[in-house]
Design a protein around this nucleic acid. Structure first.
Lengths: 235, 235
DNA sequence: GTAAAAGTATGACTTTTGTCATTATTGCGA
DNA sequence: TCGCAATAATGACAAAAGTCATACTTTTAC
């Protein structure tokens, strides 16, 4: 056995990163440690697929993951991004349905699997966890509804500015001050809900307007206020 | 006192219509009956406003309500519709934020108000209710994400067909077989996420294609299969 | 280390959808 | 019941965004 691999840095997930599992009691924490199952996923691998039945929830220890729905012509719509500390697959598990989206690895990841039975057991006996899950779902719902309205009402350019600010917020910045993620133009397009070419064009517009810099695959925001203004966010 | 007005048909909300409050115990049911507060709202009235702080949840006894977000140029995006048996305002209450949408009455309504304290008290002591709320939120989230993807990927015509099928499903049909709601073209536009004129045009296209009939303000679906095909839903 | 594949960039053009203007039509209140 | 206001309908046009073609660049795999 190699315990340092089986439970790599999950204490971090719980305490440092402050996800819903912070609410677990001592005994639940150790039950989780014995029940969970961590694995490594390489870039491009699928963690779960739209249409599959969930058998538990996933907790991301490390890496970057996208959850997307596939439209008719195979175009992906990215619904959510996940990084260390985030949990995945709870929506479908809770509503007892098949996954409505696919989780795919953008950067090599370590992910723990917590079996359905364990998770529901915690949920039924720990009202703090229930409460945290309700808040998580409420937050996701708020987010989804805001994006829905934006998609219906805002032009691509505004949504693009918004997406860049979101990516910066979510991933933070590397040593160069660029968004700390190697995200393709296509993925950005699939977040914003537009064509890849349009994404490329708007990014070069932003570059010409000195709002961003393009450092290879990395994007650096050089004028935050300008982007905020472009996104028409005034609060 | 006039008990027949204070608690008009709430037993129906609970048992017949099967909302989350089915999970309440006997004593909680009577506690709710004494704590709740029912009122009548006329068409056009606002039940709560985007930005306000929630003080409880609302349970719709009768009537038709829309929840929408207002975009920059004052355009409404309808997020959800509610009818008898539905509850309102739980998302913001649970996440402890201001309302992210406005609830406005489309057809005269009777609505009960359940104070925050009572609701949270039930939630903490009744794990069946917690569970039901989690399922409700999960369902809403799934719905929102599906609409998000549709908005990003499907043309207006498909979304319109989808919306008509949804309205039929949600409101049922009246004696003429038409959708049992007097919903304006503008409201339909704000559900679909398009301009009112585009809505009018597509509805007359659908009429010419013998998919629907327009009986004054009412819409009758005469070719369900055709609409399903137009919406590109194949499951 | 090199070739193939994937990703990025740009131009030309088309399609979709929105906007504005104008005219019916309906519903409702005085 | 009349007339006003809101809603619905339609046309002409403009703008936004998508598609297709092609070139160039970077990554990846052998």
């Amino acid at each position: 056995m190699k315990p340092q691999f089986e439970h790599p840095v999950c204490d971090e997930c719980r305490s440092k990163l402050g996800n819903v599992f912070c609410t677990l009691t001592e005994s639940q924490t150790s039950e989780m440690d014995s029940e969970k199952n961590c694995s490594i996923f390489k870039k491009g691998q699928i963690i779960f697929n739209e249409g599959n039945k969930p058998a538990g929830v996933y907790c991301v220890n490390k890496g970057k993951i996208k959850i997307y729905q596939t439209g008719e012509e195979g175009k992906e719509q990215i619904l959510r991004l996940a990084k260390e500390g985030d949990i995945l697959g709870y929506r479908s598990l809770i509503s007892g349905e098949a996954y409505s989206g696919t989780a795919s690895v953008m950067e090599d990841a370590t992910v723990c699997f917590i079996p359905k039975r364990t998770f529901f057991d915690f949920l039924h006996t720990n009202s703090d966890l229930s409460s945290a899950m309700m808040q998580l779902l409420s937050h996701d719902l708020k987010e989804a509804e805001a994006r829905l309205t934006g998609l219906a009402q805002k032009p691509v350019r505004e949504r693009m500015a918004e997406a860049l600010l979101m990516l910066f917020e979510f991933y933070g910045s590397d040593k160069d001050g660029a968004i700390n993620a190697a995200i393709s133009r296509e993925d950005i397009a699939n977040i914003v809900g537009t064509a890849t070419e349009t994404t490329i064009r708007i990014l070069s517009d932003f570059k010409n307007e000195k709002l961003i810099e393009l450092l290879g695959k990395k994007i650096k925001i050089v004028n935050h206020q300008g982007l905020i203004k472009t996104a028409h966010i005034y609060d």
